[in-house]
C-alpha cells in the first residue's frame, strides 16, 4: 500500500515536471520556426491569396504577439495552471474544445494498437519460446525482426496499398467506423507486437530454464502444469517493464500514423498546429501527448506491482 502511494506520488511529480518542460520546449521551438508568426496565422485564417501585411498586423495586435516573449510565456503558463489551455490562434476556439474530440480519436487508435500488440506479441512470443530453436521460434523471430526494422510509415503505406488492391477501398479518416480503425491500429501495433513478441519469447525461455521450473518438474508436475503455473507470471514481468519503455514509441507513432491515414486525432492536430504556427495548439496537444505517456507509465507501474511481488516490498 505504501509502495502504491509512493509510485503514484512519483508519477504525479513527473507529470508536473513533464508538463512544465514540454510547454517550455514547445514555446521555444515555435519561436525558432522560420517565417513571421503573425503572417503565418493570417494565412491560415484568411487563405494564402487574401492575406495582406495589414491583416498580419491586425493578427499581431489582436493576439499580443508584439509583447516580449517572456511575457507571452508567463501568460500561457499562468493560464495553463488554472486549467485554461488558451484559444487557438487560428480558429479562435478554446484549445481544449479543439483537442477534446481529437483526444478521443487518438485514445481509440492507441488503445486498439496496444490491444493488437498485446494480443499478437505475447501469443507468438510464447509459441516461439516454448520450443527454442524450433520452427515457430525461427520463423516468428525473423518476422519480428522484420517488423521491428521497417518504419511504421512504410508498414502503413504497404497495408494501404494492399487494402486498395484487394478490396478496392482506401481506408482513410474514420468514415467506416471500426473497420477504418483497423489499418492504422495494425500499422501502429505491429512494430510494438514484434518487439513484445521478442521480449515475451525470451521471458518464456528464461522461465523454462530457471531452477524453479526444474524444481516444479521434480515435484512431479507435468510439463504442461509446470508451464501454466510458473511461466506466465514470470515471463510477464520483463514484458510489462518493456511496454513501459515502448509507450514513447507508441506516442511517437501516433503522430506519424495519424498523418498517413488522415486519422482525426491529436497527432494529426499537432502537425497542423505546427504548420500554422498555432503556439497554444502546439503546446496543448504536446502537453496532452506527454501526459498520456506519463499516465501509461503509471499504469504499467501498477501492473508490475500486481504481477511481481518483489516490487511490493
Amino acid at each position: 500500500m505504501g509502495r502504491l502511494v509512493a509510485i503514484l506520488g512519483q508519477r504525479l511529480v513527473q507529470a508536473v515536471t513533464v508538463a512544465f518542460v514540454v510547454s517550455l520546449l514547445c514555446f521555444a521551438l515555435a519561436q525558432l520556426l522560420p517565417g513571421d508568426q503573425a503572417l503565418q496565422i493570417a494565412q491560415r485564417r484568411y487563405g494564402d491569396d487574401r492575406v495582406t501585411t495589414a491583416a498580419a498586423e491586425a493578427v499581431r495586435a489582436e493576439l499580443g504577439l508584439e509583447r516580449p516573449l517572456a511575457l507571452q510565456l508567463i501568460d500561457w503558463m499562468g493560464r495553463t495552471v488554472s486549467g485554461d489551455l488558451g484559444r487557438s490562434l487560428v480558429s479562435g476556439a478554446p484549445v481544449w474544445e479543439e483537442i477534446r474530440d481529437q483526444l478521443g480519436a487518438t485514445l481509440a487508435l492507441a488503445g486498439a494498437a496496444l490491444g493488437l500488440a498485446l494480443l499478437l506479441g505475447p501469443v507468438f512470443g510464447a509459441l516461439a519460446g516454448l520450443r527454442p530453436g524450433g520452427l515457430a521460434d525461427r520463423a516468428g523471430m525473423a518476422a519480428a525482426a522484420a517488423f521491428r526494422a521497417v518504419p511504421n510509415f512504410v508498414v502503413g503505406l504497404l497495408l494501404m496499398v494492399g487494402c486498395t488492391v484487394l478490396f478496392g477501398w482506401l481506408p482513410v479518416g474514420d468514415s467506416r467506423g471500426w473497420l477504418s480503425l483497423l489499418l492504422p491500429a495494425l500499422t501502429l501495433g505491429l512494430g510494438l507486437a514484434a518487439t513484445s513478441a521478442r521480449i515475451a519469447r525470451d521471458g518464456v525461455v528464461a522461465a523454462l530454464r530457471s531452477p524453479f521450473f526444474a524444481f516444479a518438474r521434480m515435484k512431479g508436475l507435468s510439463r504442461a502444469e509446470a508451464i501454466l503455473r510458473h511461466v506466465p507470471r514470470n515471463a510477464a514481468v520483463p514484458l510489462i517493464a518493456y511496454l513501459a519503455v515502448s509507450f514513447a514509441f507508441l506516442i511517437e507513432g501516433v503522430v506519424v500514423v495519424e498523418e498517413i491515414f488522415a486519422w482525426p486525432g491529436i497527432g494529426h492536430a499537432l502537425t497542423h498546429a505546427i504548420e500554422g504556427r498555432d503556439v497554444p495548439m502546439i503546446q496543448g496537444t504536446a502537453l496532452m501527448l506527454s501526459l498520456l505517456l506519463v499516465l501509461l507509465n503509471a499504469l504499467t507501474d501498477l501492473a508490475l506491482l500486481l504481477v511481481d511481488p518483489r516490487r511490493r516490498a
Binding site: 510458473h230 514470470n234 518483489r310
Partner: peptide
C-alpha cells in the same frame, strides 16, 4: 523427492509459499 541445492532460487519468486507446497498435493 529431489531436494533442490539452492532453495532460494528454486522457489517461484511470484508465488506464495503455501501455493508452492499445495501444488504438490493438488497435481501430484
Amino acid at each position: 523427492a529431489m531436494l533442490p541445492q539452492e532453495p532460494w532460487v528454486s522457489l517461484d519468486p511470484t508465488m506464495r509459499s503455501l501455493a508452492q507446497v499445495a501444488e504438490g498435493h493438488r497435481f501430484v
